[in-house]
Simulated scan of single mutants.
Amino acid sequence: MTESDTASAPDSPHPQPRERTLDARALRGLAHPLRIRLLGALRHDGPATASQLAEKLGESSGATSYHLRQLAAHGFVEDDPERGKGRERWWKAAHGGTSMRDDLRTSSDPEVRGAADLFLHEVATIHTQELSTWLGTSRDWPEDWTLSSDLSDFTLRLTAGQLRELTEKAHRLVESYYDVAHTDDEDTAQVRVHLHAFPRRSR
């Protein structure tokens, strides 16, 4: 499972490492709703201060400061010394995306399984919010963007191995667009791509 945002922060001259793979300790450090949202904001929109993030997310600066420090302790965020002035502390994401080891979701440790469940449910909630925001604002975009977006679902009959193969192929296809070059006059935007693939029981 991969929860991937941007390959590098907007306007950053130093690309972030593409992905951080979570082990049990890192998962427990990240598995908090506000920490997941803070990390996503830094990945999507670039470096920010705790106060700026508090205003963006509707939280207190005390809460964002505390959870940013916790994210830093686990290696998810770091100082951005190029932007800090005086006592003003700027933060940036240390990686462009997050993936979870398969064994964390089936761990015999209930604390690890609980952290995995919280992380996955929070990611699903964020996806739902992003999709709702798009549907509510799509008329504000030019027609080309509106018609290029997609909201589709498919029902297939597959084995577990075929589902994994499909998911891995889809990931490789999306990842092939990370480093597409653009000219200055091209109309580009940050695009979010969600992939949900799961079995269901039929009657």
Rank of each mutant, 00 (worst) to 15 (best):
Q52Y: 03
A54C: 02
E55F: 04
K56V: 04
L57D: 02
S60V: 09
G62F: 14
A63Q: 10
A63C: 06
T64P: 01
R69P: 01
L71I: 02
G75H: 07
G75F: 06
G75M: 00
F76A: 01
F76P: 05
V77E: 00
V77K: 08
V77L: 08
V77F: 04
D80A: 09
P81C: 04
E82M: 10
E82K: 10
R83C: 03
G84P: 04
K85T: 13
K85P: 01
R87F: 13
E88C: 12
R89Y: 04
W90E: 04
W91I: 07
K92W: 10
K92E: 02
A93H: 07
A94H: 03
H95D: 05
G96N: 05
G97F: 09
M100T: 06
R101D: 11
R101M: 12
D102T: 15
L104W: 07
L104Y: 01
S107R: 05
S107V: 00
S108Q: 13
D109Y: 02
P110W: 01
E111Q: 10
V112N: 09
V112H: 06
D117Q: 15
L120G: 06
V123R: 06
A124G: 12
T125G: 11
I126A: 10
I126V: 14
T128I: 12
T128M: 08
Q129M: 14
E130D: 12
L131M: 14
T133L: 14
W134H: 00
L135A: 07
G136L: 08
T137A: 08
S138H: 10
R139Q: 11
D140K: 06
W141D: 08
